[in-house]
Nucleic acid binder design. Sequence first.
RNA 1: CGGGGUGUGGCGCAGUUUGGCAGCGCGCUUGAUUUGGGAUCAAGAGGCCGCAGGUUCAAAUCCUGUCACCCCGACCA
Length: 481
Amino acid sequence: MARDKNVEAITNMEDDFARWYTDIVKKADLCDYSSVRGCMIIRPYGFAIWELIRNELDRLFKKTGHENVYMPMFIPESLLQREKDHVDGFAPEVAWVTHGGEGKLAERLCVRPTSETLFCEHYANIISSYRDLPKLYNQWCSVVRWEKTTRPFLRTTEFLWQEGHTAHADAEEALAETERMLGVYADLCERFLAIPVVKGRKTEREKFAGAERTYSVESIMRDGKALQTATSHYFGDGFAKAFDITYTDKDNRTAHVHQTSWGATTRLIGALIMVHGDNSGLKLPPLAAPTQVVIIPVAQHKEGVEDAARNLFEMIKSDLRIDIDLSDHSPGWKFSQYEMKGVPLRVEIGPREVEENSVVMVRRDTGEKISASSVDPSRLVAAIRAILDEIQSDMFNEAKKFLRERIYDAAGIEEFGGTAENKPGFIRAMWCGNEACEAELKERFAVTSRCLPFEDNAAVAETCVCCGKPADKLVYWGKAY
RNA sequence: CGGGGUGUGGCGCAGUUUGGCAGCGCGCUUGAUUUGGGAUCAAGAGGCCGCAGGUUCAAAUCCUGUCACCCCGACCA
């Protein structure tokens, strides 16, 4: 048997997960490195995945009444500094523009790391009456954060994202918006990306710079580490006071607006890789797959095979995303190639199938082979659709099972430490609310509080896992990306 | 930013210890034979050895500096 050089070149995830990840990113043609440190080139296949995610999120945003806008990429230093917590949080990682052409700027401009300040400045100008509220804006753009170390999709100097920024008349409405958008992200992750998530609230220590509350959706990667897949923040009226965003209410009184912001990034592609991928490569859920079905002719030089493959392609073309590979690579090469790229379903057609008017279909997620008649194209398309639906839900269930199996309880500190060191995943443990305990757990076991989950209130114990004082807060802890 | 590592055709590497014609595998091009799990043969193309100085008759190799990337930490989406 011929040695399989490319497969050899992929590191097994059990041997070196980080290497496995970067191997997939390169081998599946998702991105390439550029000459600018920490910045990646998103290649057509990677960008196609992003477009699918973007289109779906955008649809969900519009369905919930949001409008897209575009803000400048530069923020004057003085504007960035208007809200103290915010600037303290971001100043260490912003890139500065100091010159325009040959001339030095009177005031340097930062390349946006996020656009709260720009939205706030704008809101202050356009909001004056309760009739102007709520403002439900979103923008798709890239932002720059000068991170110390970078990894493709997970942490790059520049990354693509969307940032929603809304202004509301009162706290209740803004809080409801914060929660609603967290729900949108959870829906995207679970239904569309087949990534199960834990919804919850961040601790003070982990919340966004300038926020009053931060919510997030957290998920578990195949190495057991946690990844924050999206966040939603409630700002109260803190930014409104710093930026003087006021309106006149129905009783002719001046009031500050209450705001939210929420975002999701190209990191979601990293999550897709690390939640579903295996040692053969990427494994995409059908809804997020640029190519859902690939037709591969076998022995295509033989009489009738290539024509049959072309005919099949024409017959089953539909709103499904179907490709055909008529290149002169060997069938085995193509099989491996599309497994690497995570195409959910492969359709093989060779001399046997031509003879029998049939096709052989192979699922990427399970490897299962399914034969089907190709006599009636519409029935075949229906069968393909059904298989894709099944793959989508099977992949979600598989990931959910994986997640559930990696949630551990810890009542005492020894148990906590043992789990943190030996069992990658989420640790359910009680916390007294004291930041010192949170810091100590991080210091001793390299875990951070991921969230205080919404949908899990079952107490593990009555005392704080760290200090032993009475505690009523259940926290999910874990090592995170 | 601390610790470790690596820079040699597109990719992966050998050569560096002991200075002396720049090599191998994959990929690429052309042709032929092949095709049910990464085909075979033949003939080709492709290099300021990361960059800048220095030592030397001679530098991929030695010295100094510098830049980039990777891994592990600390910080973040």
